[in-house]
């Protein structure tokens, strides 16, 4: 059997303090190599926390976090991580920011620069290689942060709400664009978002998280043919699947009203196939 690109089992974490914040309450997740996996959950449920554990920046209280079989606990540098903020270094020009990760990973300066220049057009940054980050538009900054992440020589990309700060129109463009880029690159992607439509358009698999303290509420396999056009959002099947995803997002709120947590609806929902929904 092929080794999972990402395997998370029973992950727990509480931020200590005067009022400890229990964030992750036994999270499980698996991603196959080359898959595009999205993580959807309400704001503040612990999505960013989960990515930080995978990036090796946060030591969890319990559980396993593996990338290609290696534990990420206390070991950063196993994945290409794009934080929620673009965090471009203001003192580096666009090209310098693009090659930062590659440079730190030990790719030679010249080689990294060549790779970046070759990708500039694909990332819509042609002619802006020597602009300072403060001179770029929001969309360009985001694409530059993505380019920087793509140039980190790792098999796994961890993207934390990369389009969260963009307007709806730019965001739609970015969805098309990201699909194209990913199709030729074929690395594993773990994509965090709170936008279910975005998750459905982009993903092979969508995980739905409960509110904090987070667990997995459901897992959907999305098997629309690719490439997926923007018009897909008006397709009746898509609309129905979106409704099921939203229902999964809403369901766990009952838990807070005292109803015991149902087991996660693992694989029970096979959304988005051509066949009519035979369950539910």
């Amino acid at each position: 059997m092929l080794e999972a690109a990402v395997a998370i089992r029973g992950l727990r974490h509480t931020f200590p303090g005067d009022r400890p914040v229990e964030v992750l309450d036994g999270v499980d997740l698996e991603a196959a190599p080359g898959a595009f996996v999205s993580l959807v959950g309400p704001s503040g449920c612990g999505k960013s926390t989960l990515l930080q554990v995978l990036a090796g920046l946060l030591v969890p209280d319990a559980g396993e976090s593996l990338i290609e079989g290696r534990s990420t606990v206390g070991e950063p540098g196993l994945a290409a991580y794009m934080p929620q903020k673009d965090l471009l270094l203001p003192w580096r020009k666009a090209i310098g920011n693009a090659v930062l990760g590659a440079e730190i990973a030990g790719v030679g300066k010249e080689a990294a620069r060549e790779q970046a220049m070759a990708l500039l057009e694909r990332f819509g940054l042609t002619g802006f290689e020597s602009a300072w980050p403060s001179q770029l538009s929001g969309g360009m900054r985001q694409r530059l942060a993505l380019l920087r992440t793509f140039l980190v020589p790792r098999h796994l990309l961890l993207l934390d709400e990369p389009f969260g700060a963009l307007d709806a129109i730019t965001r739609r463009e970015m969805h098309q664009w990201l699909q194209e880029v990913w199709a030729t690159d074929a690395r594993t992607v773990l994509f965090v978002t709170h936008d279910v439509e975005e998750a459905l358009i982009l993903s092979d698999v969508v995980y739905v998280m409960t509110p904090r303290p987070a667990r997995m509420a459901a897992r959907f396999e999305v098997d629309y043919p690719r490439p997926r056009r923007p018009e897909i959002v008006t397709d009746p099947a898509f609309v129905a699947d979106k409704a099921r995803l939203l229902a999964a997002l809403d369901a766990p709120t009952q838990r807070q009203a005292g109803v015991p947590t149902p087991p996660p609806r693992w694989d029970r929902l096979r959304a988005c196939s051509e066949k009519p929904a035979d369950e539910l």
Binding site: P76, P83, I104
Partner: peptide, 22 residues
């Protein structure tokens, strides 16, 4: 910016790299 330090650390940066880049 602590987040920038975290970013370069996620790229596998050493303490010297952190000093140099951020």
């Amino acid at each position: 910016d602590r987040d920038m330090v975290a970013l370069v650390r996620s790229m596998g940066a050493s303490r010297i790299d952190e000093l140099r880049h951020v």
